[in-house]
């Protein structure tokens, strides 16, 4: 239970970085940290005590895998989520570099050409 709470603390810190920091690269780092914490939370939920990895090795029978193996479903979905995180990070950094080219700064408060 305490481990779950610690991952949520990590997520809140990423959210704080996303909201309160002015530097765009810091905001991206905040998003990355949130991503890490959510992935960790999902994997922690699927863990079984004294569990083995869900791989059918030579010395593991199907019955033993069924009774002792950890949950494979969140693992498959988190695998998807990690790779998607990389793609979105590439998109964010591309936008960030374009903004830097135009304004010569990463400061959010100076990027105000479209301010109403």
């Amino acid at each position: 239970m305490f481990l779950y709470f610690l991952t949520l603390v990590l997520m809140v810190m990423g959210l704080y970085c996303l909201i309160a920091k002015k530097n765009i690269v810091k905001k991206i780092i905040g998003i990355v940290i949130m991503e890490y914490s959510i992935n960790l939370f999902l994997i922690l939920i699927g863990y079984k005590k004294d569990g083995i990895a869900p791989i059918l090795l030579k010395n593991v029978s199907v019955e033993e895998l069924t009774s002792r193996g950890v949950d494979p479903l969140p693992q498959a979905l988190v695998l998807t989520s990690i790779v998607i995180g990389l793609g979105t990070l590439a998109l964010m950094v591309a936008i960030c570099l374009r903004i830097y080219e135009k304004y010569k700064t990463f400061d959010m408060s100076k990027i105000n050409k479209l301010k109403g």
């Binding site: 992935n39 960790l40 994997i43 863990y47 083995i52 990895a53 950890v70 693992q75 695998l79």
Partner: peptide, 12 residues
């Protein structure tokens, strides 16, 4: 991840 029985995810 490696300790929680998820070697695939650790590699990724």
């Amino acid at each position: 991840f490696l300790m929680l029985g998820a070697p695939d995810i650790a590699i990724t």
